[in-house]
Computed example of a mutant assay.
Amino acid sequence: MFHKAILPPGGDLARVTVMQGQALASADPGLEYSTVLGSCVATCLFDPQARVGGMNHFLLAQPPAGYEGASVDEHYGVYLMELLVNEMIGKGARKSHLKAHLYGGANVNRNMMRIGTVNAEFARKFLVNEGITLAREDLGGTQARRVDFRPASGQVRLRTVEDRLAPPVQPTTRPARALGDVELF
């Protein structure tokens, strides 16, 4: 729950959804970032002195070993964490003043690799390596989360998404044997 609202004249907030692969920063008191997370992680950064905040949303921590993509893939935390810090600095924040909140990293599908755990561990390690204070985290578990963040005040509202409201995970089924012919050439 938000503690005290700092709203622009008129009291209306502009809500911006932060999608996978995005990192956004602002000092606008009339703005609220919002995202929904499962195994993904969102980092909310805030500089209380500059009153600048930002949020990112990453799908995977980093590319697989041996990956040699021709371009940067914005869905990886290794890219989006750096991008968020740089966006914040570009808006007047100082890295030494940053406070972080981490959310998400759930393992929502029990039949899959523990992607959420890997994402959470990566985000924590990144903050330690960069000397950024971790003020709060809500990581892990099996439930999806919705995060609303007001970048100019650093206020965060977190809600879990009930399992019954989350879409069911359907395992893929393959035929027991191949049907049809394949011609190799």
Rank of each mutant, 00 (worst) to 15 (best):
H3L: 07
H3P: 08
H3M: 08
L13A: 02
A14E: 15
R15T: 14
R15K: 14
V16T: 14
V16K: 08
V18A: 08
G21P: 01
Q22D: 10
Q22H: 04
Q22C: 00
A25Q: 08
A25R: 05
S26P: 03
P29C: 07
E32H: 00
E32T: 04
E32G: 00
L37E: 06
G38Y: 09
A42W: 01
A42G: 07
T43D: 07
L45S: 07
F46N: 03
D47R: 02
D47H: 04
D47Q: 05
G53V: 05
M55Q: 10
H57E: 02
L59Y: 15
L59S: 10
L60D: 10
A65H: 10
G66C: 05
G69F: 06
D73F: 05
D73H: 11
H75Y: 09
H75F: 10
G77T: 04
V78Y: 01
L80Y: 08
M81N: 15
E82P: 00
I89F: 06
I89C: 13
K91Q: 15
A93F: 05
A93Y: 06
R94F: 02
K95G: 01
S96T: 12
H97R: 06
Y103A: 03
G104T: 06
V108F: 13
N109K: 06
N109A: 09
R110P: 07
R114I: 03
V118W: 07
N119S: 11
E121I: 04
F122M: 11
V128K: 12
N129E: 15
N129A: 15
A135K: 12
A135Q: 13
R136V: 12
R136S: 12
R146V: 01
P151V: 01
A152S: 11
S153Q: 06
Q155S: 12
R157N: 14
R157A: 14
T160M: 08
R164W: 10
L165A: 12
L165P: 00
A166S: 13
P167N: 01
V169N: 01
V169L: 07
V169F: 09
V169Q: 05
V169G: 00
Q170P: 00
T172C: 14
A176Q: 15
G180N: 06
G180P: 07
V182L: 13
